[in-house]
Simulated assay, not measured.
Amino acid sequence: MELKIINRKFSICKVEDLSQIDYSDEFCFIGKTDEELSLVCSTELVPQNAIECDNGWKTFRIQGVLDFSLIGILSKISTLLADNKIGIFAVSTYNTDYILIKEENFEKAINVLECDGYIINR
Score class of each variant (00 low, 15 high):
N49E: 10
K9S: 10
I12G: 03
N111E: 14
C28P: 02
S24T: 15
G117V: 08
N121R: 11
I73V: 15
I71D: 02
A50C: 08
W57T: 00
L45M: 14
E2G: 08
L37P: 00
K76D: 10
T79E: 09
D17C: 06
N95F: 05
D116P: 10
I71H: 07
N105P: 04
L18G: 00
V65E: 08
C115M: 14
I120R: 05
V40A: 00
S75I: 14
D34V: 04
R8P: 15
V112H: 12
T93C: 03
S42D: 06
Y98L: 12
I101H: 06
L70H: 11
K14E: 04
F60M: 09
D67V: 12
L39D: 02
I119N: 11
I6D: 00
N84F: 02
D54H: 06
D116Q: 09
D116L: 04
L70G: 13
I51W: 03
W57R: 02
K4Q: 12
G31I: 10
K32W: 01
S24I: 05
E44D: 15
I5S: 09
L37A: 01
L80Q: 06
L100Q: 06
D17V: 04
D97C: 00
F89W: 11
D116V: 03
I119Y: 14
R8H: 15
M1Q: 12
E114F: 09
I62T: 11
L74G: 12
D54Q: 06
E35D: 14
S38Q: 00
E35N: 13
F106C: 01
V65T: 13
L18K: 07
F106V: 01
R61Q: 05
A109K: 01
F60A: 05
L3W: 06
S78I: 08
L3T: 08
G31T: 12
G117F: 08
I5E: 08
V15E: 00
Y23C: 07
G31R: 05
Y23A: 03
N121P: 02
C13K: 02
Y98E: 02
N111W: 05
S69D: 13
I21K: 01
G117N: 03
L113Y: 04
D25N: 13
I120L: 11
L18S: 01
D83L: 13
I62Q: 06
S42K: 00
S38R: 00
F68T: 04
E16C: 03
L81E: 03
D116M: 10
L66N: 12
L80S: 08
I119P: 06
I77T: 04
K76E: 07
E103C: 10
F68W: 09
V15D: 00
M1F: 11
L70S: 14
I73R: 05
F29L: 08
R61N: 04
L66Y: 09
L81Y: 05
I5R: 12
K102N: 06
G87Q: 06
S69T: 12
